[in-house]
Simulated assay, not measured.
Amino acid sequence: MAFEDKTQNNIMIDLKAAIEPDTSTEEGTLIDHSFRGAAAEFEKAYIELELIDQNGYAETADREHLILRAKEKGITPYAATNAVWKAEFNTEIAINARFSAGELTYICTEKITQLTYRLMCEQTGTGGNVKQDDLTPIEYIDGYESGELKELLTPARGEEKTEDFRARYLSIVAAAQAFGGNRAQYKAIMHKIEGVGACKIYRVTAQEKRIKIYFLDSTYKTPNNTLVSDVQKVVDPIGQQGEGAGEAAIYHVVDILACTSESVKIEAKITIDTGYTWEDLLASAQEKIDGYFLELAKSWENEQNITVRILKVNAAIASVEGIIDVQNTALNGREENLLLDPNAIPVRGVILCKQ
């Protein structure tokens, strides 16, 4: 439904056409004055009607109304989560001890080993994924000298963007409903777990009587062992597999596995503009390749295999200011597109500029 033609002038024409033909409607007449005010109000009403119409459909609704529509099916946007780090200290600290680093604060949630603890960033969002400076206790700790964030255990994710939420909602509605341990249900389970960004689910076969789920973390990288273990506990805890102790359906034995990373070595004949050197441009080229590989990682969930394409690699490198041309590109030693394993994503290896 569209009301683009329902402007004040067009409404005036329609109103005047509806009255007796011998009635004067020229500018300045009483009819003209009364119709002009009414037409302005009608135009506003049509604008509101168009907004109501747009917000009645998931494909065109604004965020507020999209959330309301999706909520009817039990679907809500993913909220921003908290990053969890492994931290090391020179002395024992108490659970719930708090620390500051940069503009962020952290709280101790668990002791891992002696002098090693889990710290949760108290601020939600991806800012918590960035390693900060040395940790400073917010309250006095006897014997404290130093503390450092060592490893990001559970990456945080930001609040789900409107278009990402719209795409997820539409895909869920279009697909089979999630129930009874079907593929849609396991996918929904995985995406609700903090730290999970994408997953692939493999059914039981005649040779393999276990469901296998490979996943990427919320930064679309290979997850660390701690996150794999945490996700396993949520879905189907080791020692209780098949018993329905986790989110998995009873009798379903589910193994949680990390998607692997394949290093991609790039060799190419790169023509560099006057006034630049390869050393000047290398960091920018690496950044462009990382961006392309991130796009591929984000598509991994919906692709049987990822293909690293020479054309895209060349385009990424050539987009760097100071690079004129890219030719004779080889990926892992071969001048052809690189097809990865179904459960692998590319990571940048060395980039060599051949003369």
Score class of each variant (00 low, 15 high):
Val350Met: 10
Ala178His: 11
Ile141Val: 13
Tyr140Arg: 00
Gln185Tyr: 01
Arg348Pro: 05
Lys150Asn: 12
Asp62Gly: 04
Ser218Gly: 03
Glu163Ile: 02
Asn55Val: 14
Ala344Lys: 14
Thr226Trp: 05
Thr7Tyr: 01
Val264Ala: 05
Glu208Ile: 13
Glu4Ser: 11
Lys111Ala: 11
Ala94Pro: 07
Lys131Phe: 11
Trp278Thr: 08
Ala184Arg: 11
Thr60Gln: 04
Leu352Met: 09
Leu294Ile: 15
Ala2His: 13
Asn129Trp: 08
Ile189Cys: 05
Thr113His: 06
His65Gln: 14
Ala258Arg: 04
Val326Asp: 10
Leu170Lys: 12
Lys312Glu: 15
Asp5Gly: 00
Cys199Ile: 02
Asp273Thr: 13
Asn314Gly: 08
Phe35Ile: 02
Ala188Phe: 03
Asp134Phe: 08
Leu331Pro: 00
Thr277Val: 06
Lys150Leu: 13
Lys200Asp: 07
Lys71His: 10
Tyr186Gly: 01
Glu72Thr: 12
Val228Trp: 01
Asn82Val: 02
Arg334Lys: 15
Lys192Leu: 05
Ala39His: 04
Arg348Lys: 13
Met120Phe: 00
Tyr276Glu: 09
Leu294Trp: 09
Thr124Lys: 09
Gln8Ile: 00
Asp14Gln: 13
Ile270Tyr: 04
Leu352His: 02
Gln207Tyr: 10
Arg63Ala: 08
Thr29Lys: 01
Val84Asp: 08
Asn332Val: 11
Ala97Ile: 13
Lys44Val: 15
Asn314Leu: 07
Phe293His: 02
Thr222Ser: 15
Gly242Cys: 08
Glu92Phe: 06
Trp278Ile: 12
Leu135Ile: 03
Ile107Phe: 00
Ile201Met: 05
Tyr251Trp: 09
Thr105Gly: 01
Ala97Lys: 10
Ile256Gly: 03
Met190Asp: 06
Gly180Pro: 00
Thr162Ser: 06
Ile67Thr: 10
Ala285Cys: 10
Ala283Asp: 15
Lys71Phe: 10
Asp14Met: 08
Ala18Met: 11
Glu48Thr: 03
Glu88Pro: 00
Lys298Cys: 00
His252Trp: 01
Asp164Asn: 03
Tyr46Cys: 02
Ile317Ser: 06
Ser229Met: 08
Asn182Trp: 05
Val320Pro: 08
Lys71Thr: 06
Thr105Met: 05
Ile324Asp: 12
Thr60Asp: 09
Ala258Asp: 09
Ser100Met: 08
Ala79Glu: 15
Ala198Pro: 10
Glu301Asp: 12
Ser229Gly: 11
Gly102Asn: 01
Phe179Leu: 08
Glu295Tyr: 00
Glu148Tyr: 06
Leu104Phe: 14
Lys233Gln: 14
Tyr106Trp: 09
Val235Met: 05
